[in-house]
Design a protein around this nucleic acid. Structure first.
Length: 203
DNA sequence: GCAATGATGCACT
DNA sequence: GTGCATCATTGCG
């Protein structure tokens, strides 16, 4: 069943970890493209220097300041899109970035949208990749996550242990860059970095 | 198996 | 004009 607004209207770190194991569904041309969420990141509020919302309310980020349970889609590096779910109450800008899913339904369609990668683990193992695999672009920005085009549902799927790490690609965020606000399912090969903690074992 | 790099649009200064 | 919540490819070894 679809997650409703009350799910997202909670502390962002909780929403981010609870989203692991939920199912992201994109309805496209009469078919449901579905994937089990295996990796997320929390952007917890205006004080979080890694969050787009830390720069204040702008046309791009305004959706983060709105009600929870709404999509926030933005373009990155001029090439890719990233999908977030807005969290927390209206006026409190925060969101969870959906970073990777494990393809579940209509995998063949998703594979084609990704130009036929060799392995399943390369279909949606990253925020840009999953948007490509599910045909998510700017036209799906600011849509309700209970809409008919895009939603997240709870299928009571079993989840392995959830691990955390610093968020990816936020080295500019000062004291916030090392906050362990990335969540992923242990040993799941669809996570964007299969050995996310490898740096810990280096000098 | 890495690290380095280019692609590319657009929001914001 | 700057820089980005990324990815695929290259070139190395």
């Amino acid at each position: 069943m679809k997650l409703d607004r009350s799910f997202y209207d909670r502390p962002t770190l909780k929403v981010a970890s609870d989203l692991i194991g939920k199912v992201l569904v994109r309805r496209l041309d009469g078919r449901n493209l579905a994937g089990r969420i295996v990796e997320t990141e929390a952007y917890i509020g205006p004080l979080d220097l890694a969050s787009h919302a830390s720069k204040g309310k702008t046309p791009r980020t305004s959706v983060m300041f709105g009600p929870p349970g709404v999509s926030y889609v933005y373009m990155i590096y001029g090439v890719y899109f990233c999908l977030n779910a807005v969290t927390e109450s209206e006026g409190n800008p925060a969101a969870v970035l959906i970073r990777a899913v494990e393809p579940l339904e209509n995998i063949r369609v998703m594979r084609t949208l990704r130009y036929n990668p060799l392995r399943d683990t390369n279909i949606a193992s990253g925020p840009g990749k999953l948007c490509m695999a599910m045909s998510i672009d700017k036209s799906l920005n600011a849509v309700d996550l209970e809409s008919r085009k895009l939603w997240i549902e709870d299928r009571s799927l079993q989840v392995d242990a959830i691990e955390t790490s610093p968020r990816i690609g936020v080295d500019y965020a000062g004291e916030y860059k090392d906050k362990p606000w990335r969540f992923y399912e242990r040993s799941n090969p669809h996570v964007s970095r299969v050995r996310p903690n490898r740096n810990e074992f280096r000098t």
